[in-house]
Amino acid sequence: MDASRTVTLLSVAVVLGTLVVTGPLVGETDAGRAPSELGEGTATVERVQLTDSPSFSPGRFGTGVVYLRVPDVAVEFASTTGRSRLVYRVAVPALDFDRVGTAAVDPGTTHRRVGMSDRAFDPDSLDRDRYRVNVTVRVQSFSVDRTVFQRNLTVEVADG
């Protein structure tokens, strides 16, 4: 039997063996199972900053819509204990827009950035020149829920 065939048979045996060993018959192992996001931890925030200001601008490349460009939020921590998470919320009440982005905060995290995709609007549905945009950032876990950043911004709809 040549070496390459042995290698093939061995690989197949390893794959099948691993499947059975990690399977329910032999007893579940936790290998590869991700821990849940939320814990009992908390975090003290040093600084919260929006990477840009929210804005309305026309979509490019023939999309024919107006986008609400939502900036990322960058958070610096003074201290963190246990697992918690950041909840970044952007809402435009007049447009029924309300979206949340989250990011896990592990013990020892110093920086965290939370992003959110832009939201498209049909140009005809934007009947005002400016909209109020509410931005909040919270630190949340099973034991805390604290707002660390809150802004009410007025954003103009760009022409085009």
Binding site: R60, T63, S117, D118, R119
Partner: peptide
Amino acid sequence: PAIGEAMQL
């Protein structure tokens, strides 16, 4: 780009 812009690009 937003998703729509990326797709149209």
